[in-house]
């Protein structure tokens, strides 16, 4: 990357899915690799089951903590509808790493509207690189449905150029010791 390039990664999902831990993990990896890093989070009400997004920006020097429309190099989505919602933030040709999970939002539960069909197929038809997996099943295979965030970070890691050990170190830094083995397993299952 040239000297003044700033790379942008967005992590999006449903409040409570563990996006904050994922962004913390990613931030650790980037700091360990000597970048100036800004991570912007959302707390409070939006964390209660709403649509959430976290911005991670890194480079030699980062000014704004926000990522705007058409600026993201990579989006990591924890849920299919959220992947579609944040598509406008992705650069043309950017990478969309997404779980194929569907979580109905309240207007769908109450029947006011319906969950859009075949979202991943429609996303695949856009000018992007789509990488998806059944993160929930993989997380359960690792030992807990809560490890979806680490599965997705594992998938993201395969689209970035940082040594595997840096990711494992970062997992150790942000995850409680008793869940370490399970999370390491989740990280590796993404491959």
């Amino acid at each position: 990357m040239s000297d003044n390039t700033v790379k942008n990664i967005m992590i999006v999902g449903v409040g409570g899915q563990g996006t904050l831990l994922a962004s913390k993990l990613l931030g650790q990896v980037l700091v360990a690799n000597g970048f100036d890093v800004k991570v912007s989070e959302v707390h409070g009400m939006s964390q209660r089951g709403g649509s959430v997004c976290t911005y991670v920006r890194y480079g030699k020097e980062v000014a704004s903590p926000l990522i705007d429309l058409g600026e993201a190099d990579i989006i990591v989505a924890f849920e299919a509808l959220e992947a579609a919602r944040y598509l406008p933030y992705l650069k043309k040709g950017g990478v969309l790493v997404t779980a194929d999970q569907q979580i109905d939002p309240m207007p769908v539960i109450t029947g006011v509207t319906t969950y859009p069909e075949n979202l991943l197929e429609k996303l695949a038809a856009c000018d992007i690189k789509l990488v998806s997996c059944d993160a929930l099943a993989l997380a359960e295979q690792a030992g807990s449905s809560k490890a979806v965030n680490i599965v997705l970070m594992g998938l993201l890691a395969r689209h970035m150029d940082f040594p595997r050990q840096d990711w494992l170190d970062a997992i150790e830094a942000v995850v409680p010791a008793r869940f370490l083995d399970m999370n390491r397993k989740a990280f590796d299952l993404a491959g």
Binding site: V14, Q47, S51, A84, P105, M106, P116, K122, L123, C126
Partner: peptide
């Protein structure tokens, strides 16, 4: 995407 996406309020 062409279609209208349902909102996801907290």
């Amino acid at each position: 995407l062409e279609e209208t996406l349902p909102v996801r309020p907290p």
